[in-house]
């Protein structure tokens, strides 16, 4: 090997092709999918297509944003789907007066937005508590609510489907703000806030530092436990919001189905978006793109007559490719 010269001069490193792919691959994939669809799928360039895709991806992006923060600390949150079910079960119970009768509808709807999200955040806090105080591996700690959460939601509703029609509440999924679906606005706002958290705040740096080297982070005085607990709380709260959107969209809450499989969609979006699952990085924009790519692949296959089941296989393939590229790029 005659590479000793370059290794001695670390000041000007050039990214290898693999690193470039790892950095911009998801963006390229997104563009390729767009081009493919414009050429092949009929009526792709329409408001309706855009609307369908964005509204479908919104909940995934919202949950995946929280997941990105958790993964940045080197953790993982499997409970998000079940927390969506809890929040989705709770909201109709509040505005339909099943918990306690509230005469003022405006107040009832306001509480239906706030309480479920707080409850989901509290569940997230419990996840964080298990992880930080009992040093339980995140995958096991969050498995508790993954299993129990959906059960709790079913017990709360006696396993019944709650059907409702409540336009003020359903604004979160059906309404439009300046012509844009409300949930899409919410998704964009949340993604931007998370981006700013990582990019500009002290807490954001501390999240990355904890995931990058936890021992070193503790030795610089970073409150590791508090930082970790925080990300689980945020992840729980965002899952709660996503749960509200799902039930509002369906005009019904089925504790069996709300948020089913969401944890895996969110993790997939993070992985495809280029954040390392081992922590130390949080690429919010990547997560957004990752979720869009996964959504677009599914839409492309559906629109061209491939069944949903087959789309799952393609989704799995995407994840394998994304993770493979990342690991290779990191080694080079």
């Amino acid at each position: 090997m005659t590479m000793t010269d370059t290794s001695l001069k670390p000041t000007a490193t050039t990214a290898s092709p693999l690193q470039l792919v790892s950095r911009y691959g998801v963006f390229v994939a997104f563009l390729a999918l767009l081009v493919f669809n414009i050429a092949v799928t009929p009526n792709f360039l329409s408001w309706q297509t855009l609307n369908v895709n964005l509204t479908q991806v919104a909940t995934i992006v919202i949950v995946a944003t929280g997941m990105t923060l958790v993964i940045a600390t080197g953790g993982i949150d499997l409970s998000v789907g079940s927390l969506m079910a809890i929040s989705g079960a709770l909201a109709p119970m509040i505005f339909m007066g099943k918990l306690l009768p509230i005469d003022n509808m405006a107040l009832a709807v306001t509480l239906a937005f706030i309480i479920p999200v707080l409850v989901a955040a509290a569940c997230g806090w419990f996840n964080g508590f298990l992880v930080t105080h009992f040093r339980i591996q995140p995958i096991v700690a969050t498995l508790v609510f993954f299993i129990a959460g959906r059960g709790i939601a079913q017990v709360m509703t006696n396993g019944n489907l709650q059907v409702f029609k409540n336009p003020p509440f359903q604004f979160i999924a059906m309404g439009h703000i300046a012509g844009i679906p409300a949930q899409v606005v919410l998704m964009v706002v949340i993604a931007i806030l998370a981006y700013c958290l990582i990019r500009f705040t002290v807490l954001g740096r501390q999240i990355i530092a904890v995931g990058g080297n936890e021992k070193a982070a503790r030795l610089t005085g970073i409150p590791v436990r508090r930082v970790k607990t925080f990300v689980y709380v945020i992840s729980g709260a965002l899952a709660g919001i996503a749960g509200l959107i799902v039930v509002a969209r369906n005009s019904a809450s089925d504790a069996n189905l709300v948020g089913m499989g969401m944890e895996l969609d969110a993790i997939a979006a993070v992985a495809v978006g280029g954040s390392l699952l081992t922590g130390g990085r949080a690429n919010i924009f990547g997560t957004l793109m990752g979720a869009l790519v996964i959504q677009l692949v599914r839409y492309t296959l559906l629109a061209n007559g491939v069944p949903d089941a087959a789309a799952l296989v393609v989704k799995a393939g995407l994840i394998v490719v994304a993770v493979f590229i990342q690991q290779r790029a990191d080694r080079s």
């Binding site: 002290v202 740096r205 501390q206 990355i208 982070a217 030795l219 005085g221």
Partner: peptide, 27 residues
């Protein structure tokens, strides 16, 4: 125990100082 390998020189250097570098939580 020392470096956060993937973080920049800037972030590594100011990690312990960060709490004193913030205005309303922002660096």
């Amino acid at each position: 125990d020392g470096i956060i390998p993937d973080m920049s020189i800037r972030e590594n250097m100011t990690l312990a100082l960060l709490p004193k570098l913030k205005k309303a939580g922002i660096v």
